[in-house]
């Protein structure tokens, strides 16, 4: 099978290069860059939607990107079961185009927040996380609209269906408001769709792949090896 990973980038994406570096380093393959106006995407492999400020985050983070032709293709592939990962702005785009539940709204502090956080992995049955040995990983966050919101009815559905993937936690995996950097419901940092082939997360694993920034991101990408 052809090994393939695709990164869809939009005007204003700015973590596309960082993601490509991480993929090259961890998965030893060169990702394919797809411009947002691509109206036919064939055999994408894993699709990544990178962080940044697509279309300047004007109107609302992620919303304008959902009008790009490439997103129609992402939705088509999602239905076919292709693995899709949206990080930060990518997560915002995936909720805006309804591939994922909930919404990402302004942080409780109303301020942009950039720091390293600990995340407890909530679900290891999923192919995105089953190869990660650690129970808690450390990735940076950098966002101002990262507060995950979902109503109680849908929250219950997420819980019942094991769709919650990452929660903000302490180093030892405690979950409380103290470790919630943005006010997310139940400290939720990342979820999957019902079919469990679409993952969205606010933290940046691609920013944790060397000894200076921490190496927990490596296991995230290495874990994807069997999907490609």
């Amino acid at each position: 099978m052809n090994k393939e990973v695709s990164i869809i980038h939009f005007p204003g994406s700015n973590c596309d290069r960082d993601l490509a570096v991480a993929i090259k380093y961890c998965l030893k393959l060169k990702p394919k860059f797809l411009w947002h106006n691509e109206s036919h995407i064939k055999d994408p492999g894993i699709i990544f939607i990178p962080g940044g400020f697509s279309f300047g985050d004007y109107l609302r983070a992620g919303i304008l990107a959902t009008k790009s032709p490439a997103i129609k293709e992402v939705i088509r592939h999602a239905k076919k079961g292709v693995p899709i990962i949206g990080i930060c702005n990518g997560f915002q785009i995936l909720t805006e185009c309804k591939l994922l539940e909930g919404a990402l709204i302004k942080n409780s502090s109303q301020l942009f927040s950039c720091k390293k956080v600990f995340l407890r992995i909530e679900n290891k049955k999923n192919y995105f996380t089953k190869n990660i040995k650690k129970g808690v990983v450390q990735y940076p966050i950098a966002h101002s609209q990262g507060k995950f919101y979902v109503d109680d009815y849908n929250l219950k559905k997420l819980q019942d269906n094991d769709q919650i993937m990452f929660k903000y936690s302490s180093k030892t995996g405690d979950i409380s408001d103290k470790y919630n950097p943005n006010g997310s419901v139940q400290n939720i940092a990342g979820i999957v769709n019902k079919k469990k082939n679409v993952l969205g997360l606010m933290p940046h694993p691609e920013r944790a792949i060397d000894s200076f920034s921490g190496r927990d991101g490596i296991v995230f990408f290495n874990g994807l090896n069997e999907l490609i």
């Binding site: 700015n14 973590c15 960082d18 301020l111 942009f112 950039c114 950098a142 940046h204 920013r207 200076f212």
Partner: peptide, 15 residues
């Protein structure tokens, strides 16, 4: 102050 700045994007910030 510093929290409000993304100091890591581009992944080459050492310190």
């Amino acid at each position: 102050l510093f929290r409000q700045y993304d100091n890591m994007v581009m992944c080459d910030t050492i310190f």
